[in-house]
């Protein structure tokens, strides 16, 4: 029990005309990397806001390190949440923002922060308001990493960053996490890129949790069967179909299944090809199903969703 860093029970957050979070319950355990996934506007930032007492719950309870985080310095000083739209004092430079962070985060590693700034090629003496979107993201990433807070939230940390910088972030995250284990919550709609970093996946859609599972369990939970349409259809009959594709007489159907060795052999003997379904496809499917897209999503809807989930810059 003491391993639980975050415990949320029946949390609801209502704004005037929207319910941003709808009776959510979840726990985050110590020293794990969580993926908080979902589309833009699904409620990810609202959830993190409430967990860090930057926002307020309308209903339900939130416990962080076993206590209510609201105005609770003992809890707050152990966490770090730099939001995607984080505001900085207009006249601050990155160097000054890091100096400020060093005043508040006990585990702050200034040397690490400077090394990161160099890696991200961040102009440290330029005013923050003059930085590009990507450089602004880098400031947030550096504060998040160098704070070494026991509970660190990264809110869509890669906006405006190019592929090189994004991978730089992933590299540093894995390396620093390995050396300084802590609980990390990585909010993202770019699932493919971060999938391998995650130990646990929480997917939110329209204020509700629609998936809350071990990342490896999710990855192994579905399989794609390809081959002659008739053979595929009989092989997958009776299973939950996630999505399917068809070209002439060849079909490719993804079903929820963990095939046994015997089933795999059977598939091979039938001339079927087996493939895995990526975490991103599974999340997209879950979101679609929750949005009322039906059991088997059409390819067009899938592509549209995938596009949304892979879009990097806005």
């Amino acid at each position: 029990m003491s391993e639980d860093v975050v415990r949320v029970t029946d949390l609801t957050r209502r704004y005037k005309d929207v319910t941003a979070l709808d009776t959510i319950s979840l726990t985050f355990r110590k020293d794990r990397i969580y993926g908080l996934l979902g589309r833009n506007g699904a409620g990810k930032t609202t959830l993190m806001s409430v967990l860090t007492a930057q926002g307020f719950p309308s209903d339900g309870t939130v416990e962080v390190f076993g206590e209510d985080p609201y105005e609770n310095e003992a809890v707050l000083r152990r966490l770090c949440f730099i939001r995607e739209s984080q505001k900085y004092p207009d006249n601050f430079t990155p160097a000054q923002a890091f100096r400020a962070a060093s005043l508040f985060f006990e585990g702050w590693d200034q040397e690490f922060a400077l090394r990161l700034a160099e890696d991200f090629q961040l102009p440290q003496k330029r005013q923050i308001k003059k930085l590009s979107r990507g450089q602004l993201s880098a400031v947030g990433i550096i504060i998040g990493l160098a704070s070494r807070a026991e509970l660190t939230f990264f809110d869509e940390p890669y906006l405006g960053l190019d592929a090189v910088a994004r991978h730089l972030f992933y590299d540093h995250l894995v390396r620093d996490y390995a050396e300084h284990p802590r609980t990390v919550v990585l909010s993202s709609h770019l699932i493919d890129e971060v999938a391998n970093l995650l130990e646990h996946v929480v997917v939110i859609d329209r204020g509700r949790i629609i998936m809350n599972d071990d990342a490896e369990a999710v990855r192994g939970s579905a399989v794609t069967v390809s081959g002659p349409a008739g053979v595929v259809a009989s092989f997958v009959s009776g299973r939950e179909v996630l999505f399917e594709e068809r070209l002439m007489n060849t079909a490719s159907v993804s079903v929820r299944a963990q095939l046994s060795v015997a089933e795999r052999r059977e598939a091979a003997e039938l001339g079927l090809t087996l493939g895995q379904v990526s975490l991103q496809q599974l999340v997209v499917h879950a979101s679609l199903a929750h949005s009322g897209g039906g059991m088997a999503a059409s390819q067009a809807a899938m592509s549209a969703f995938e596009a949304e989930f892979t879009e990097v810059s806005r």
Binding site: A53, Q54, E73, R77, Y88, P89, D90, A100, F104, F105
Partner: peptide, 16 residues
């Protein structure tokens, strides 16, 4: 306007 949101980002309580 400039430092309140930033301070919350620095995990400071509103009182502090």
């Amino acid at each position: 306007t400039l430092t309140f949101p930033f301070s919350l980002g620095m995990s400071v309580s509103r009182k502090s």
